[in-house]
Every structure is written in C-alpha cells, then in structure tokens.
Design a protein around this nucleic acid. Structure first.
Length: 283
DNA sequence: CGTTGAACCTGTTTGC
DNA sequence: TGCAAACAGGTTCAAC
C-alpha cells in the first residue's frame, strides 16, 4: 500500500542509515525485480557511496557516487503493492520473498522484500532522471489551491479517478484518496470539474492534512508495509472509511458504502459525501 | 478526453 | 473440511 506517506516514511528512516555509507556485497535472489541492465546495475552499485535518499511521488531515489569515479547515478525503487525496503542487522532472519540484499559499510544490510513482486528497481543516469519522471503530476505539497483548482477545471472524470492518477497529482493511492474525500465531504464519483469553490478548497486542504497526519503516524500498515527500520506503521488505527464497508461513519454513524471506480474500491459515507455536491450536516 | 478489464504476482479471506 | 472465488497498498496496456 505504499502511497506518499509510506514512501516518505521509508525515505526518512533509511536516510540516516544509508547516507555516507558504501554498498558492499550485493545479492540478487530475484534478479527479475531489476528493470534495467543487470550488468550496469551491479557495476554501478559495487562500492558506491550513498549520497542521498529522496522521494518523487511514490518512487524512492538513492543517489549513488560510484566507487570508480564515474558519473553519479540513481538507484530508483518503486514498492508496488507489497514492497518493503528496510535496513536491518545482517543476522536478522531472511524472510521469504526477500529479493535483494545489499551489505553496507556500516555493517547493516539494506533489504528489498516484495511478496507480490509488483515492485521494481532500476538504475538511472542523472541525465535520464527528468525524462523518467516527466509524466508525473505535481507533488501535493508543492502546489497551492489555485493550481489544484486548475487541475480539476474542465475534467469530467470522477474526482477519485483523478486523485489516483499519478500523472495528474503524484502520491495519493487508494487509501488516502478515499480518506481525503471523506474529510472533505466530497463524493468520490463527482466529476472533478463540477466541484464548487468550497469543495475544491475542502478537498485540497483535506488531502494535505490526511497526508501530513499519515506521515506523522509513520504510514498505514494493512499487511505488508514496513518502515525503513522494518517496523509496521501506525496510521491504520486512524482510518475513517477505507476498508470499513458496513461500519458506522465516524461522523454521522451512517453505514459506510463501497463502490468501484477505476477498478478500485471506493469507500465513502453516503450522508457526509452526497453525490449532489451539497454537504450534509452531521448529527 | 474518458472507462473497463486484464495482466503482472502471492497470500488471505469469504462463501458455498 | 475443502475448494473456488473474491479481494488486496500499484501500474500499464489494449480495447472501446
């Protein structure tokens, strides 16, 4: 379920354990997770120093300074649905579905584990970074309300579909799009372009508030997600409607409903998120 | 511009 | 108990 808050949590957890360290032995138990040339990948990582750990949307970037003085490059990781990227002691049990283990000069190991194998990694030269991420929409924390309103303007697609579209706005996934729509009191199927000024403002604020709170909570662990230290997150206890079909809405006690949009479950409260666009008052 | 369904995978839960 | 279907955080592609 790694969405922006999970990926950000992983990045923050890995940064102090990786930056300044060198990569030593690399073990690829499942080479298929590497989507660029294996030879280049291995050569670039061997002995490289990690100079930075950052995030772009749901992608993790490890900036590498190769040992042989070649140009710096980036180890790019996407966690897919069940990916885990974490540092641990070398003696920690090697869990099933661990695909990559990199030994670090600190003595720790960086491990990539992914039961469903929707995750992937690749090596990118610095010059290829812009093209690789060119299609991504903006970061939610780097736009203002006016820009968000412009993104929605004229769009007839259900607003939840757009929130899930990484080329429109990067970082949201199925959990936080549903949570943000609930907090904003906006029905997930409403055409984005039909949202009024008040709704746009509520939604923009809600999505940033939800993302911030989830980062503070170290992300949501439904089952597989782990922090950069290999620990579960804590925000799963704060979810309002996601995966709560049939349970009472936390605001008005109406049963939470589920509909399918863009092939994904959309959980919402039919009373707090009316499809008319008018916001119902809670009891 | 928009939607749907399938594909890529393994694992768990649900229903009969 | 057993087996099959449904479903799961994501992305991409084809078809319409």
């Amino acid at each position: 379920m790694p969405e922006l808050p999970e990926v950000e949590t992983v990045v923050r957890g890995l940064r102090p354990r990786l930056v300044g360290r060198r990569l030593r032995r690399l073990r690829l138990y499942q080479p298929l997770v590497v989507k660029s040339s294996l030879g280049r990948f291995r050569r670039a990582l061997a002995g490289a120093r990690v100079a930075g750990v950052s995030r772009r949307g749901k992608y993790i970037l490890l900036e590498l300074h190769p040992a042989d003085g070649r140009r710096r490059c980036f180890w790019v990781v996407h966690l897919g649905m069940t990916g885990q990227l974490y540092a641990c002691r070398p003696g920690a049990p090697l869990l099933k579905h661990t695909h990559v283990v990199a030994s670090l000069s600190s003595g720790d190991q960086l491990r990539f584990r992914d039961p469903r194998r929707f995750g992937r990694m690749l090596l990118l030269a610095e010059k290829d970074l812009p093209d690789y991420f060119a299609a991504l929409g903006p970061e939610p924390f780097r736009i203002n309300l006016a820009r968000f309103a412009r993104l929605c303007a004229g769009r007839t697609a259900p607003v939840k579909n757009l929130l899930l579209n990484q080329n429109w706005l990067r970082g949201l996934g199925n959990i936080y799009s549903s949570e943000a729509l609930f907090v904003a009191g906006v029905h997930p199927a409403r055409p984005a372009g039909a949202l009024g000024a008040a709704e746009l403002k509520r939604l923009f604020r809600a999505l940033r508030q939800v993302l911030r709170a989830a980062i503070a909570g170290q992300g949501t662990t439904v089952s597989d997600y782990r922090t950069g230290e290999g620990l579960p997150g804590g925000y799963q206890n704060s979810l309002r409607v996601y995966d709560r079909e049939g349970e009472p809405c936390p605001r008005c006690r109406t049963r939470v409903e589920r509909l399918v949009l863009a092939g994904r479950s959309a959980h919402f409260c039919p009373r707090c998120q009316p499809d008319s666009g008018k916001r119902a008052r809670s009891g």
